[in-house]
Write a protein that binds this DNA or RNA. Structure first.
Lengths: 160, 160
DNA sequence: CTTTTATTGACTATATTTGACCTTGTGACC
DNA sequence: GGTCACAAGGTCAAATATAGTCAATAAAAG
């Protein structure tokens, strides 16, 4: 269980909770109102959005300024058509930092492509702590490993 | 003989005591607070963690910096036959060739410690084909990764 | 006396919080 | 239509709050 002791974590949890309670898969709210609710600087909301609601984590944020302005936070599902290939092509590339890898793995766990145990297992060996001193280009290795894992997840003989 | 009166030992004993009293199998605390409690340098805490709370001794440590930062010390679950600890001990400081790794993984799959999918997943990224050109000491990395995986298999907080 | 283990502190890395300033959209007024 | 006030949201950098690393030194063990 997270300590939830800092503001950013509490705002994140709040947004995820109401996102989970809604039917449409997105929520619309105002930055200033939310900032008031948590008695914080409005820019704190941007901080939470940019660190917790990224594309890798499966979210899309739209907004509008001016009168009637708003924030819309959308929870994305995976495209069932060729999802692995799309993920590999769009999100991995030639380099994959520890943080981006973890986000991606969490996302694949949410989509039930990995079990919790598999997610922990993969994250454990993708850690900089494990790779850094033995691998000059750790991000290149992570990218390669992640692609290899995803390719193997497509094997037919895997669910026997 | 240890005098049992040095700081590191007392901090170790303290952490193990509160770990034993908790229900969840892990504790969360702050490095600075603990250092204050023992009136020592914060880095002393890191020393204790790296020397006493290692995977081979049955612990995992996770942490986070910045506001709301914390240390989480996880006590690994019981391993009655000491199988993992023995495997880890054998692998410490050793090298693990692709062939030996594959044999070990197959054995753990037969013993139903890994599912077929997990075995395929691990083997896929342990291949020399994946590691060789990016990792000067591929066997050292495999040994380290394998230990890390085994440690994580003992976590109580993953429901296997 | 030598080797191993423990202690400390200076420096580094990372995450969060806040505030001053910037940009864009809307509508009233001319 | 142009301009202006106001109502959003955006950006960025400084201040603050944590934790990590490393190397020098001290203490203990052998």
């Amino acid at each position: 269980m997270r300590t939830m002791s800092n503001l950013a974590d509490r705002i994140e949890a709040y947004l995820k909770r109401i996102l989970g309670e809604t039917e449409e898969g997105y929520i619309v709210l105002q930055r200033g109102t939310l900032a008031d609710y948590f008695s914080c600087a409005p820019s704190q909301i941007n901080y939470v959005l940019t660190t917790r609601f990224t594309a890798e984590k499966g979210y899309l944020v739209e907004s509008r300024r001016g009168g009637g302005g708003y924030l819309r936070i959308i929870k994305l599902g995976l495209d069932p058509e060729g999802k692995f290939q799309r993920l590999m092509a769009e999100l991995i590339g030639e380099e994959l930092s520890q943080e981006r890898a973890y986000n991606l793995i969490d996302r694949l766990e949410e989509e039930e492509i990995f079990t919790k145990k598999e997610a922990i297992l993969i994250k454990s060996i993708f850690a900089d702590r494990i790779l850094a001193d033995l691998v000059p280009k750790a991000s290149a290795l992570r990218a390669r490993m992640m692609k290899e894992i995803l390719a193997n997840m497509c094997r037919d003989d895997i669910n026997i």
